[in-house]
Nucleic acid binder design. Structure first.
Lengths: 194, 194
DNA sequence: ACCTGAACACCGTTCAAGT
DNA sequence: ACCTGAACACCGTTCAAGT
């Protein structure tokens, strides 16, 4: 079997997707082109069209893949955290995940996801673990009552906002430590004096 | 003076910048090309290079312009709000500003701003008013003590995160109303039971 | 000083043709 | 069914030439 025949058996699509994720993580979205991905994989520039209807379609698939990766990172954290503060551990996981691949995360939260096959399921699966932990902490009386999903969205918004500001350079490396610590306090205790 | 000579007097740069902002607001960053902007203004595709060193340079200028616009929106709000809750009014101003032009705001918070002439000043000016109001509310005892700038960054992070999630479609139009209301409560009172 | 227009190397997308 | 390669209309960037 020659090199050029390696992708004639249905595995070109996952290979294109994996390479696209890789390029976006390493070089950024700006350098992710269909022609470059095809070149990297040794296929012709027209080959991707058989598997993705266009560049936007591939980017949507990358975003979906990002949510799957995030969900796996959460699951990994849950396996490793013992009896500790699971909510904080998950928050740290999100911060590390998105600081390590800012452009991928930006893509995940940018696409007005046009109906992509399985996107909603990937998103739901990614946030399943955090939502379960939030509900659990509510039952234990460590968090206020209310719809766990709304609380979850709020927490994600805070984390996503913080990483966006950090990646944009508004939070310098020097101040990030104290800022993140105080942010954790603010989320729990609020900004109103008690 | 012929049409083609209209920009021979130093006003091509601001015209290019204004048109770029407009295209990004209306059609999105994806449709903003140097050649298209030049075409819209009736100059040759090489003309912009005399005023912006490249596409990235123009995008940086657009981001800076966005902060100037945000600062003006804050100032406008302060002129119109009477004795009401100025902090909430400013928060609403931010939400409306960024929901009206998501791609511009994304650009503002994306660029790892390479040293752009006057960028830091534009950012500082944009957030001057909110920071003043935060410091004032601290003096009145309506907000906890601490570095106003750190509190400001935290508040901006929450607002920016919420709009990002909304623009990504994670906050549906139906749930956005109750979510934003509860988010305001969460910011002030926190998620820990009192 | 400022803009034009040709030139170059890239892109996304389409589509007949090959295997 | 899957991939190739030519073709088309776009890009960003560079640069000699014009005014």
């Amino acid at each position: 079997m020659t090199d050029s025949a390696r992708y004639h058996h249905g595995n070109l699509r996952p290979a294109l997707l994996a390479r696209a994720v890789e390029v976006i993580e390493v070089d950024g979205v700006r350098d992710m082109s269909l022609r470059r991905i095809a070149r990297d994989l040794g296929v012709s520039h027209g080959a991707p069209q058989r598997h993705f209807s266009g560049k936007a379609d591939l980017l949507d698939a990358v975003a979906k893949q990002g949510f799957t990766m995030l969900g796996e990172a959460y699951a990994e954290t849950m396996r490793n955290v013992g009896g500790g503060d699971r909510l904080t551990a998950l928050a740290v996981t999100y911060l590390e995940f998105s600081m390590a691949r800012p452009e991928l995360v930006q893509l995940m939260f940018t696409r007005k996801h046009s109906p992509v096959e399985g996107m909603d399921e990937a998103v739901a699966e990614a946030f399943r673990v955090p939502l379960e932990v939030i509900a659990e902490e509510q039952r234990r009386g460590n968090l206020i009552e209310g719809d766990p999903e709304q609380l979850g969205i709020y927490v994600v918004a805070v984390l996503h906002g913080l990483t966006s500001l950090a990646n944009a350079g508004f939070i310098t490396a020097g101040s990030s430590q104290s800022l993140l610590a105080s942010a954790a306090d603010h989320v729990l205790d609020g900004l109103r004096p008690r």
